[in-house]
């Protein structure tokens, strides 16, 4: 089953490209000229988002390295013990929405500390796999089009992240404890 799904996800993109090209051939569309047109747009977009990316990523890095996250971790400790949540997984809950590469770093850290078959590892893996880097997605997407007032977008994203983490804790207890 996993193999089928993995193969499917490898195959799907080339299949889409081939299909688009064949369709263009059938409808006698100028494929090369169209491609160049679109590629120029792609270049512009990637360059335009640089300043926004720098601003957000610097903020997040400062928050992480300064130890601000550690202070939050200390405050929440008693609550964690009550819900049988391994303390090691708290960092991943806090970094998940902030930084994708940091989350992968924390995940390997948890594997090293608690062993690959531990409950902490499984919970951390489910949290990592089931969510996205909310702040990063927001900065890329809204940054690209120059939106400055995010309105309720971030709040909705963060609330969904919280629901996701609570769900992960609940589901993992059923599956792995």
């Amino acid at each position: 089953m996993i193999k089928i799904l993995n193969n499917l996800s490898i195959m799907i993109l080339p299949a889409i490209i081939v299909f688009i090209l064949i369709y263009a051939l059938c409808t006698k569309t100028k494929a090369y000229e169209s491609f160049i047109d679109g590629a120029k747009e792609g270049f512009d977009v990637a360059v335009r988002i640089i300043p926004y990316l720098v601003a957000i990523m610097v903020c997040v890095a400062a928050f992480r390295e300064s130890g601000a996250i550690l202070i939050i971790e200390k405050m929440l400790r008693p609550l964690l013990e009550f819900f049988k949540i391994p303390v090691e997984t708290l960092t991943i809950m806090l970094t998940r929405s902030l930084s994708g590469s940091a989350t992968l770093g924390v995940l390997s850290d948890i594997i090293n500390q608690t062993g690959v078959e531990s409950y902490a590892t499984k919970l951390a893996a489910v949290i990592t796999g089931s969510s996205e880097t909310t702040f990063y997605v927001a900065s890329v997407y809204f940054g690209a089009i120059g939106i400055k007032k995010f309105r309720h977008a971030l709040l909705a994203g963060i609330l969904a992240d919280i629901v996701g983490i609570v769900a992960a804790i609940g589901i993992c207890r059923i599956f792995f404890l």
Binding site: I17, I20, L21, Y23, A24, T27, T29, K30, A31, S34, F35, I36, D37, G38, A39, K40, E41, G42, F43, V45, A46, V47, I49, I50, L53, V54, I56, M57, V58, S101
Partner: peptide, 28 residues
């Protein structure tokens, strides 16, 4: 890292939007 990411995105972005443009122009 932010700039490196944006640079690495240029290629993928250009390639995909190119392919998508073909799909667009062909009516797909």
């Amino acid at each position: 890292k932010a700039v490196e990411f944006a640079i690495s995105l240029i290629g993928i972005m250009a390639f995909w939007l190119g392919i998508v443009k073909i799909a667009q122009n062909s009516g797909l």
